[in-house]
Design a protein around this nucleic acid. Structure first.
Lengths: 252, 252
DNA sequence: GGGGCGAGGTTGTACAGCCAACTGTTGTAC
DNA sequence: GTACAACAGTTGGCTGTACAACCTCGCCCC
């Protein structure tokens, strides 16, 4: 029951994160020096730097050579862990909303060129296509069209159509997600979207496409989510030196 | 003209990045072990790990304990550096498009509560509001509404209204950008948007709001960009363990 | 009051080494 | 043949050290 022992640097990072969000360091305040943190936590400076590196990529603090680190006021927008972001159900619960949904269709099929490309499979390979409607407190907010490779799709196909969270179930069967590439844009609702979401065809929907891979780098899903306008927004943190975000021309 | 000497780990990272995008390691291929890379580059393992860490946060490779690193096929979506993402003009040029734009209005004013919040200023502080239309090859694709704190706004106000890139000019005056928090959603075009972009009022536009800060953590802009549907998409890379992205309820 | 200068403080980069945790493979036993 | 065990290979985590680059702040001078 003890769970895995967290590495030292994670404990330190969690501690500092808590201290910051609890307001012990106001927005713009300077953090203690690395050497001092190392002494107070009784660890080496390298470990402290690992912890601070995590806070930096989280966007909680700045850092530049020669000056103490500065706390960046969170700005209200909470960033979520990968797990919360990946699972609609977990995310909704973390926001105090009641997630729901129903599986409209689960169809086995053969990979089109596009699907094969994103799932790194040969064209024609067996895949599963799943169409779901997601709700918050009973109100439909999103249509999700996902393509799974066979081994994952079989698990999804066997699930209860009313199940709120596929993510939990997949995890229980040993399907792990570790990386995702998201593309976010706007697309007009088609007839099916309009029917399922209760909007008019042609209305602009917020679209998120993503390809997720497991820790070994194998694609586990290729998904396209369409949100009603005004329901959700995506937040992204970004800093110089990292290349985690981009903007692309919309060719199609 | 030699520019700054890049740190060792950046050279190594650049080298590996080039090798990967050049296809020397196909999608799914395994990278050489850290020790081997260290020998071939003649540096310590720590330096190699720093380089690989950069590639990992860029989403080019996976990594897990016990197994060699695996190349994640880029999937076609190119991620841009912070600088390219920040500047519309630089981004456009990097995509082979001709950026343009005109400054519609530059108005000094006093910070509203919202502006004061995002720029970390007292309400009523002097700020500048700038409205611009951005074009690609002469076609309007985006409306940009930015609020600057006084010291930055003064520089912008003095610029040529037809200048393609404010970013270059600001940089020349010592205004540096280092972090940004983006919020992406869909919003209906208002009358002004419709007029400037040549669409109908009520059409769904892709909206990106961002607050950017300098290396010391001081806000330097609070901006709201609205893109015509179908012109651009945003891409984000995301992996377990990092908290760089989120999804939020749209309260307003 | 303002500007220049220098000393000390702080983070960035790089090296070396050690052990633990985990993976993939090989080979053995049944 | 198949399941299991041992092993070598590999990355994660942590410590310690040294120096370089850079920032801040106080001091001095004007």
């Amino acid at each position: 029951m003890a769970g895995k022992a967290a590495p030292l640097y994670r404990k330190v990072a969690g501690d500092l994160r808590a201290a910051i969000t609890a307001g012990e360091y106001g927005s713009g305040a300077r953090l203690p020096a690395e050497d001092e943190l190392a002494r107070t936590y009784g660890v080496s400076r390298g470990t402290i730097r690992q912890a601070l590196g995590a806070l930096r990529t989280d966007g909680l603090v700045t850092s530049r050579r020669g000056a103490r680190r500065v706390v960046l006021g969170g700005g209200g927008a909470r960033l979520q862990s990968f797990e919360e972001l990946r699972s609609f159900a977990r995310w909704a619960r973390s926001q105090g909303e009641e997630p729901g949904g129903r599986t409209v269709a689960v169809d086995p099929g053969e990979a089109t060129e596009e699907e094969a490309y994103h799932l790194r499979l040969p064209v024609g390979e067996r895949i599963f296509r799943v169409l779901r409607v997601r709700t918050l407190s009973g109100v439909p907010v999103m249509v999700e069209r996902t393509t799974y490779p066979e081994r994952v799709g079989e698990l999804v196909a066997a699930m209860d159509p009313g199940l709120a969270s596929h993510a939990d179930e997949l995890e229980a069967h040993g399907v792990l997600f570790s990386d995702a590439l998201h593309t976010i844009d706007v697309v007009p609702a088609d007839a099916a979207d309009a029917e399922l979401l209760g909007c008019r065809a042609g209305d602009g929907l917020l679209r998120e496409r993503r390809r997720s891979t497991d820790p070994a780098g194998l694609p586990v899903e290729w998904s396209q989510d369409r949100y009603l306008p005004g329901t959700v927004a995506f937040t992204v943190r970004n800093s110089s030196g990292s290349r985690a975000m981009g903007r692309s021309l919309n060719g199609s």
